[in-house]
């Protein structure tokens, strides 16, 4: 109840103002609404979408379908944006999207060294570490070290390709399908695909009883 016991010079009841950044955002929003450039209801829809409807589960469905259907995989690698749009995942930062495939000889890693471009329609919004200066620089200068920090060990003879996203092109990693999943459904397969695997800092999860053949 007594939220603010500390004494202020004003003794009348008041509401504690938010911080400067939040006040600035409120200021911008109210000014833009007055100019008719922003509709608060449209903002709410966007926020709802990005908080609850767009996320890495979308990308996991894409990966699972590529694992299960060779024709889809071929399309995905040839024209990522179109193949992904066929599953209903479209929108900002998804228009130009290239899917890069991990193989027994190549491992792919995605970064945006400039400003954290990221394939929103399939992965949602990027995690904090993706936007941090250390990741943006070290993914390029020391990709193997970054992978090790994520617990991802690669054989020394595996080539690591680092893809630097731009406003013109964004990337999604197609991880290797784990062994021992031949009979799995797409829903089961999707559960093995984490956000980090699609950025390339990890591999797809192994099925619990899976054995590396």
């Amino acid at each position: 109840m007594a939220d603010h016991d500390h004494s202020h010079e004003h003794d009348h009841d008041h509401t504690e103002p938010p911080g400067d950044l939040e006040l600035k955002v409120k200021a911008l929003e109210s000014l833009l609404v007055e100019k008719g450039l922003v509709d608060p209801a449209a903002l709410d829809v966007l926020i709802e979408t990005y908080e609850h409807k767009v996320g890495p589960r979308n990308g996991a469905q894409v990966v699972a379908r590529a694992w299960a259907q060779p024709q889809f995989k071929e399309w995905l690698l040839r024209d990522g944006a179109a193949a992904i749009a066929s599953l209903g995942f479209t929108g900002r930062q998804g228009e130009h999207l290239r899917v890069v495939e991990n193989t027994t000889t190549v491992h792919n890693l995605v970064v945006c060294t400039l400003c954290s471009c990221y394939p929103w329609p399939v992965l949602g919004l990027p995690p904090v570490w993706y936007k941090s200066a250390p990741y943006r620089s070290r993914a390029v200068s020391d990709p193997r070290g970054v992978l090790a920090e994520f617990g991802t060990a690669l054989d020394p003879d595996i080539e690591i390709r680092v893809w630097d996203s731009t406003s013109e092109m964004r990337y999604l990693v197609l991880p290797q399908r784990p062994q021992g999943t031949q009979d799995w459904t797409e829903v089961q397969l999707a559960a093995l695909v984490s956000r980090n695997a699609m950025i390339g800092v990890e591999k797809a999860q192994q099925p619990e009883d899976g054995t590396a053949a």
Binding site: V25, L28, E29, L32, L37, V38, D39, A42, L43, D44, L46, I47, Y50, E51, R92, L125
Partner: peptide, 10 residues
């Protein structure tokens, strides 16, 4: 979130 949505909308 509010700022993010404003930028997209603009």
């Amino acid at each position: 979130a509010q700022l993010f949505a404003m930028v997209l909308e603009l």
